[in-house]
Nucleic acid binder design. Sequence first.
DNA 1: ATAGTGTCCATACACGATGTATGGTGGCGC
DNA 2: GCGCCACCATACATCGTGTATGGACACTAT
Lengths: 224, 224
Amino acid sequence: MPSKPGAQHARRSAAEPASTGLRERILSATRELLRERRFDALSVADILTAAEVSRASFYFYFPSKQAVLGELVRDAVTQGQQAARPWVEGLQIDGSQDPVAALRAGVRDGARLWRDNAGVLMAIVENQGSDDGLRALWLEQMDLFTDAAAARIESDPQARERLGDMSVRAVAASLTWMGERLYYLAAAGVPPFDDEEVLVDVLTNAWTSILYGRPVECPKDPAD
Amino acid sequence: MPSKPGAQHARRSAAEPASTGLRERILSATRELLRERRFDALSVADILTAAEVSRASFYFYFPSKQAVLGELVRDAVTQGQQAARPWVEGLQIDGSQDPVAALRAGVRDGARLWRDNAGVLMAIVENQGSDDGLRALWLEQMDLFTDAAAARIESDPQARERLGDMSVRAVAASLTWMGERLYYLAAAGVPPFDDEEVLVDVLTNAWTSILYGRPVECPKDPAD
DNA sequence: ATAGTGTCCATACACGATGTATGGTGGCGC
DNA sequence: GCGCCACCATACATCGTGTATGGACACTAT
């Protein structure tokens, strides 16, 4: 092979501060690619060219493309939980607020999180089944949401009482997973959930019906 | 070009004296393998040896292993819908029956369907994301369930009225998908849904809360 | 300067899986 | 015998993954 190492690589395409770690480049290139392509239709080679990184470098920073996805998911979810914290904690403190409105706000936050990170979140949901690491990660994240939901329910005497002897945690988990599924379907453009209004209404209705026994009241009138 | 013998060979034209049809062997071998291994951890080579079929024969009957799974899913689901028909239709005729009990029975039927076909159903849920054909198939199947649920709701004045101006179909779809997710988690052994009693209670409670506004009443007392 | 070290790159390879192609075997009806 | 059909064995082209191996460059200590 005439592998003359003379005319070496054109170095970085300039403009990029060399300090823009390769690791970050890999991460954001993947996130970008995920915006328009399915994770499994994505080869490391694709990521390599998009991130302008060599194969060797890629495998230096990540053991596999699944690991990259894992990190993207962790980022997205923790960022989302940051945003949702006021919902969970605020409720417990400020018990005076209308719980239904608060629930709806939380549901909408979830929709926003999914809208902003659709590619990444769809990717893990779709590939959770074919990779043990991703599955564990996703279960863990859903567990965190379940914890929050359970705490929310636990601190709400009205809901607590209504659930009677049913496991609060089980109910919280079911609500969490229902959300996961519906948000995913919405992100995937599956009707009728592709309509965010419908999605939020239905999900909010589920929460309020299950926790308070009343259907969603004024679906879209009040200033929201 | 041996691939153009005029028409489809005698696929399975009734009485087949041949050696137990290769096609069937492939199907049931795959179903069996799916009982203990994930679909994506299954190569066609594995199916070949399990079914004692040659590679050429496999690709004569099926274009891919996904197609095999697709057929298994179709079989399982239609069989399941057969079983669930009395639930959907019976309700509409015999309006006198306790709707909550009927709902619970339907939920339990679903659990049974999933228990009996766990491997196959888990496989499609897990790989729905990485194959367009499987995804379309699964959406189609869920649509059928949604149709049934929507009809069930539509024919129930009490539920209809409670839902107000919310889309019946959207509610039906959300309940269907919630079931899909919870049954899947149960099949995957994820707590707390791995406990069938909890699973059925929570799901039934969701249905009755959303449709009737009342929590599940006597969780496990009556003769069931 | 010179050597050392750490970051990065190019190339190539071993492996495993998929799907296709080619040629062969044995039973069966004519 | 002939042709045909259901089936098998094998080989192969292709593609994706993950692992080496070895070299280029920059920055630093001596």
